[in-house]
Simulated scan of single mutants.
Amino acid sequence: MLVDARGMRCPWPVLRLARAMRSASRVDILADDPAAPAEIAALAATQGWSLQERDGGFVVARS
């Protein structure tokens, strides 16, 4: 699943990611808010999800 959160300011990218992860085991997310990488990493860490940076975005997956 792809979540395109470019142009959105935090917390919206993280909220979109959390919603997408309810029904998917892997989400590719694109976000250009400077705060997004830290927020996405924090959410992934608290949920036990793996996180990889890729092509200007992130891949989040259930571990």
Rank of each mutant, 00 (worst) to 15 (best):
M1H: 14
M1F: 13
L2A: 06
L2Q: 15
V3D: 00
V3W: 01
D4I: 03
D4W: 07
A5G: 02
R6D: 04
R6N: 11
R6T: 13
M8C: 03
M8S: 10
M8R: 07
R9C: 08
R9D: 14
R9A: 14
R9S: 12
R9Q: 10
C10D: 11
C10M: 14
C10T: 10
P11I: 04
W12N: 11
W12A: 13
W12L: 15
P13S: 09
V14I: 14
V14T: 14
V14E: 06
L15Q: 13
L15V: 14
L15K: 08
L15T: 11
L15S: 07
L15P: 01
R16Q: 13
L17P: 00
A18T: 03
R19N: 07
A20Y: 02
A20H: 04
M21A: 04
M21V: 01
M21K: 00
R22D: 11
R22W: 08
R22S: 10
S23V: 10
S23T: 11
S23G: 08
S23I: 05
A24P: 04
A24L: 09
A24I: 02
S25Y: 02
S25N: 12
D28M: 06
I29C: 01
I29S: 00
L30R: 15
L30A: 12
A31R: 00
A31G: 05
A31I: 04
D32A: 09
D32N: 15
D33T: 03
D33E: 05
P34H: 13
P34Q: 13
P34I: 04
A35S: 14
A35W: 09
A36Q: 05
P37W: 10
P37Q: 09
P37S: 10
A38D: 03
A38H: 04
E39V: 01
E39I: 01
I40G: 00
A41V: 04
A41Q: 07
A41L: 07
A42Y: 03
L43N: 02
L43I: 04
A45F: 09
A45G: 13
A45K: 14
T46V: 09
T46F: 08
Q47S: 05
Q47D: 04
Q47H: 04
G48F: 10
G48T: 04
W49I: 00
W49D: 00
W49T: 00
S50A: 13
S50L: 11
S50Y: 02
L51T: 03
Q52H: 13
Q52M: 08
E53D: 09
E53M: 08
R54D: 10
D55K: 08
D55E: 15
G56C: 10
G57F: 03
G57C: 08
G57A: 11
F58H: 11
F58K: 06
F58Q: 03
F58T: 03
V59A: 10
V59R: 15
V60D: 00
A61I: 07
A61R: 12
S63F: 12
S63A: 15
